[in-house]
Design a protein around this nucleic acid. Sequence first.
DNA 1: TAGGCCATCTGGTCCT
DNA 2: AGGACCAGATGGCCTA
Length: 303
Amino acid sequence: MDSDASLGSSRASSPEVDDIFLHSRKGGAFSAAVSSSTMSDSPAELSAELRNAMAMAAAAGDKLGAFKAAAAAAAAAAAKKDKKQMSEPELQQLRLKINSRERKRMHDLNIAMDGLREVMPYAHGPSVRKLSKIATLLLARNYILMLTNSLEEMKRLVSEIYGGHHHHAAAYHPSACGAMTHGSPLSGHPVGHPVHHPLLPSTAATLTTGISSVRAPPPPPPAPPTSHPTSHGLLKSPSPGSAPLGGAFPHWSGMPCPCSMCQVPSAAHHHVSGASLSRLSADTNVLLQDCELKEVPGVEDIF
DNA sequence: TAGGCCATCTGGTCCT
DNA sequence: AGGACCAGATGGCCTA
C-alpha cells in the first residue's frame, strides 16, 4: 500500500525508524501525532497523466497510497533516463517521489522527537502544550547531564559506603542537592540512569525497552504533581501500574525535578537567542508544574 | 497583528 | 545512481 515502505534507508547508520518504533506506531498516539501534519500530496498543478494514474490507483486504495504508488512508478520509469531527457511529467513524478521521501524522513524525525518527549520529565497531557523541538532537545541535554551528575554522585556515595576513598568528593553536583537542602544525602537525586547498580533496581531495562515497547494510549491528564518532600526518594520504584517510560510519562516519584536546585552547573549553559527565551521560558513553566515551583528562576537555570 | 513553530517543497551535497 | 541529509524559502496555524 505505502510506497514509502520500499523507500527504506540505504545507510547502515540510519536505522529504520519503523524498526525502532514499530510497536509504538501501531498504536494511536504516534499515528495521530504524525498524521496531524498536513499532507499536501495533491498539488494543484498535477499533470493530467498523474491525475489519471492517481485516479486509477485511487479506485483500488487510499488516495495517499495511490498517489505515492503512481509517483513511484512514474519515477522509476523516468529514472532510467537522463534528467535532461525527462519530460515535464516525468520530472514532476521524480520531484513528487523525492518530496515523499523527504516527508517520510521528517515524519520519522518527528516520531523520534515524540519518543524523546515521552521520556522527558515534564507534565504530559492533553491540556499541556507539547514541548517545541528546540525545547525538547535542550531539556533532553540537560536531563542527560543531570543523570550523569547523579550517577557520579551515587558512585561517590557507594565508594563511601564501602570504605572507598573519597575521590572527587563534592566535585560533582555542587548545587544544593545532597545533604544541604534535600533532607538526606540521597534525596534529590533521580533514579533512572541506564547503568545497573547492585543497590538499585535495574532501570536499564525500562529505559531501553521503553523506547520500543508498546505505546500506551493517548496520555492521561497530567498526574498530580509531586511535591519535593515526597518526590525525591532516590530508591523509590515507579508507582505501581505505571508504564515505565512508555506511554504517558508516569511521573516517577524518583524523577529528577527541573528546579534550579537540581539543575546542572552553569557550565552547561548554552546559547539561546533572546528571542527564543520567552517561548522557552513558557515551556519551562510546564516543567516546573511537576515541582509545584511557581517561581521561574530564569530560563538559564533550566536550559 | 506580530512572532513562533511547524510542515512541506526544493535544490544542493554527501555517502553507500 | 539512488537515497539520505541539509538548509533556505514559503505558507499555515496558533498564541500573546
